[in-house]
Design a protein around this nucleic acid. Structure first.
Length: 507
RNA sequence: GGCCCGUUCGUCUAUCGGCUAGGACAUCUCCCUUUCACGGAGGAAAGACGGGUUCGAUUCCCGUACGGGCUACCA
């Protein structure tokens, strides 16, 4: 019997969608699909100051590109709407009030300055960041210390206040994480986290718990950085909805910087020269640009494949998986506990494998787009397919198709004649003249062209080896590309003749 | 500092007490290719340390070290 699951995707719309974010969403998606569950995309935008316009649309586009398509209607309706936490503001207040009434939370009137003062005052070498905890709260301005009348007076006078959770003095808080097993905390070591901010918005802590309950989430996935605040969420579940209704938690390992240590951030991408976002992203506030894997030339399948393997494997030696295969084989039991350093070389390897495994038909439209974006006109689909077939094994990124394929469609602008000039002589000129004049009567196939080429060389007593490189230079402009005769076959008789003649003139 | 999590080749990882520790990326050598790649063959390369438990520990337990995360009216 399969359990009905409902997981949530909760990317925060504070700009961009980085590797860690996509992977969390991906694992959510794989799990939901495998277990036949629903998924919800919830926008966690409770921090108004960091919220960025257009971020939601961007996230949808990224997910769509990856092949993970959440139902777009979730933003506009459906069973649990609204899905933007900023639009659910009124809901959270009710729960915060309930917590206060039941004695699990309290009002705190301390100003930012007062908090800073407190931190400065209690700061010691052994305790560099004093917490607003069971000890400190006795000395602060809150509904625990102030007395009912004063609280009432402050509130009716419109004094700003927050709601803080009242962490119990002496309680073991334990829960089972699907990846890590049992995790324990002691309540005395956790501080009285703010649940409802002065602007009436909930913090993440209150919002996840309330929304997970209201949206009937059965399994909650998030990054490992959330582990330390899990006891707050556990307690909230206990106070509000009952531990027996709490979703199962899975704290995913972090994606780390390739060099040094620490979490991978968007700055690392700029610094080390690789993308960390799924797609290009420009922060509308700062104008800061970040490049995406898509624009760098990654196939979505390769991107998803690479990301999935960064923290999971199926126990066999298989490394290449399609999204469907991942859905089928994914299991949380095999998700790793420890973080993984991101390796861009390996990421490129995945892409290369995917390009090689894709057919010319799979690649056709993507390559067409890349070439035309860079000013190459293509009006012969048949030719494009032939070129892709010939060239795809040497492309690691989709953008490599430009360098590998451009000379099939337009005469090379620069021809590196210098590298053959040294050993040039009239015999060679004569040879090439004769070869191109023989072309018209030939069957236009790579094998015939090569046969004729060799036959003529032998007749003129010139080593074939001394003629191959010149021919390549004449046709493609440099020392690269697939077999020369294959190239000639594709570009055709006229173009072959013209390129040879053009080169001969400058020799 | 405190709390929590983690620790197998340079990197990503396999191993669920029997290991001559396997694979992949990167690297090196050779082969193939009258270019550059692809491809093929091979090499070098790992269990943080110290204690237990056990006939036997990379695997289980405990310490230590190291790494990471958190420690906001950010998520």
């Amino acid at each position: 019997m399969t359990k009905k699951v409902r997981v949530r995707f909760a990317p925060s719309p504070t700009g961009g969608l980085h590797l860690g974010g996509v992977r969390t969403v991906l694992y959510n998606y794989l799990f939901a699909r495998k277990h036949g569950g629903d998924f919800i995309l919830r926008i966690e935008d409770t921090d108004q100051s960091r919220y960025v316009q257009g971020a939601e649309e961007y996230i949808f586009e990224c997910l769509k590109w990856c092949g993970i398509e959440p139902d777009e209607s979730v933003l506009h309706g459906g069973e649990f709407a609204p899905y933007r936490q900023s639009e659910r503001k009124a809901i959270y207040n009710e729960y915060a009030e309930k917590l206060v009434k039941d004695g699990f939370a309290y009002y705190a009137f301390d100003t930012t300055e007062e908090l800073e003062e407190m931190r400065a005052k209690f700061k010691t070498h052994d305790n560099p960041t004093p917490q607003y905890n069971h000890e400190i709260r006795e000395r602060m301005r809150n509904s625990l210390t102030l007395g009912e009348e004063e609280v009432h007076r402050l509130m009716s006078a419109g004094s700003p206040y927050v709601v803080r959770i009242k962490m119990p003095m002496n309680e073991e808080i334990k829960f089972t994480d699907m990846i890590r097993g049992e995790v324990n905390f002691h309540s005395s070591l956790v501080d009285d986290k703010v649940l409802l901010k002065a602007d009436g918005m909930p913090t993440y802590h209150l919002a996840v718990v309330v929304d997970d309950h209201l949206m009937k989430i059965s399994h909650a996935f998030r990054g490992e950085e959330w582990l330390p605040s899990a006891p707050v969420h556990i307690l909230l579940w206990k106070y509000l909805f009952g531990l027996e209704n709490m979703p199962e938690w899975a704290h995913l390992p972090l994606i780390l910087k390739p060099d040094g240590n620490g979490k991978l951030s968007k700055r690392d991408g700029d610094r080390l020269g690789f993308p960390v976002f799924a797609m290009d992203w420009t922060d509308p506030k700062t104008g800061e640009k970040a490049t995406g894997f898509k624009e760098r030339g990654f196939l979505p399948g390769a991107f998803v494949n690479m990301l999935a393997m960064l923290g999971w494997n199926d126990g066999t030696e298989q490394e290449i998986f399609t999204l469907d295969e991942l859905c089928e084989k994914f299991s949380l039991e095999r998700v790793h506990k420890s973080g993984a350093k991101f390796d861009y070389e390996k990421a490129k390897w995945f892409n290369h494998e995917w390009i090689k495994r894709n057919t010319k038909y799979d690649l056709r439209s993507t390559v067409y787009e890349i070439l035309s974006q860079r000013g190459i006109e293509i009006n012969d689909n048949d030719k494009l397919e032939k070129v892709i077939e010939l060239v795809k094994d040497r492309c690691t990124l989709l953008t490599d198709f430009y360098d590998q394929a451009k000379f099939f469609f337009s005469t090379p602008e620069t021809v590196d004649v210098d590298s053959i000039k040294g050993k040039w002589n009239d015999d060679k000129t004569a040879f090439f003249k004769e070869w191109i004049s023989s072309l018209d009567s030939l069957e236009w196939k790579a094998t015939s062209l090569e046969a004729k080429f060799k036959e003529l060389a032998a007749a003129k007593n010139i080593k074939v080896g001394e003629l191959m490189l010149p021919l390549r230079i004449m046709l493609v402009g440099g020392k690269f590309g697939p077999g020369v005769f294959d190239i000639a076959e594709i570009i055709g008789t006229e173009e072959t003749k013209q390129r040879v003649e053009k080169a001969l003139r400058s020799l």
